[in-house]
Write a protein that binds this DNA or RNA. Structure first.
Lengths: 139, 139
DNA sequence: CTCGACCCTGGTGTGCACACCATGTCAAGT
DNA sequence: ACTTGACATGGTGTGCACACCAGGGTCGAG
């Protein structure tokens, strides 16, 4: 369940974490402030230190955001988690989200179909014109 | 190229247009103000009247929005259109957009894969536990 | 011992895509 | 004559998801 990309031997700084996850430092702090990601350990210098488990939680939030879950829902998910939601409950949350992702994908797919039909129409228009032009030039 | 759903015999009011397109009246006026959709004819009462061609343009914008094009880009598309862009140029614009839609879909698909792996992991955890419980109860 | 490269907190700013509201006009119904 | 309902304009408000400061600390390198 831990993504291989977020495995580290020694805890890393926030900027390294950000680069690993493909998000910005600001975003990580924002998630922490919003209670979406737990506050990580701090070093003696007061800096945030992200170990593998902290990183994998963050990776989870990136995944949820990447599938279109908004911050409000992520907060609810995280708070349910902290409130001791059991596995079945978490599973149900993820399955619900999964379903909505599929719905949205289907929606986009519909619009995409319209786009492709439009593109085809343009291609045919252009093909027809160039055909008539070559006819003219042949005449 | 005209979507069958937006065919009308007589021009319709803005609220009817909105319902046909699945958007709100405010959104239509917003698109008009932003120069994304052309201003339609007006009746003698000053009301906007959407005929088939006005509706099909709007349907095009809905399609572009539905595939994630932002308002800025739609404005550029519309202005290129008005500036007399030829079919080849319009086609190129649509093809570029099509490509970016596919990219975004692939991106979501990646995150979706992670989501599904996580769901599977939970299912297995739960299955394993219920199996051990039935073992215990059988012992 | 100064400099640059990190990090910290706390606050403010931004861009997007509408939603919402006040106020007014007009036509049709009762 | 009056109410109702759909439209008009112009302006303001909203929610989201960060981005971007300012001001200050720490640490290693040169």
């Amino acid at each position: 369940m831990l993504l291989p990309e977020v495995r580290v031997d020694d805890p890393v700084t926030i900027s390294v974490a950000a680069e690993m996850l493909g998000i910005t430092v600001d975003t990580i702090r924002y998630y922490e402030k919003e209670g979406i990601a737990p506050a990580p350990e701090r070093g003696s210098d007061g800096w945030r230190r992200y170990d593998t488990s902290a990183l994998s939680w963050l990776a989870g939030t990136v995944m949820l955001r990447g599938t279109g879950m908004n911050v409000q829902e992520m907060r609810e998910y995280a708070s349910a988690y902290r409130a001791g939601a059991d596995d079945a409950e978490r599973l149900a949350l993820l399955e619900r989200h999964h379903a909505t992702v599929l719905e949205r994908q289907a929606e986009v797919q519909r619009h995409l179909g319209a786009l492709e039909r439009k593109i085809d129409a343009y291609r045919q228009t252009i093909a027809a014109r160039s055909a008539s032009e070559s006819t003219r030039s042949a005449a």
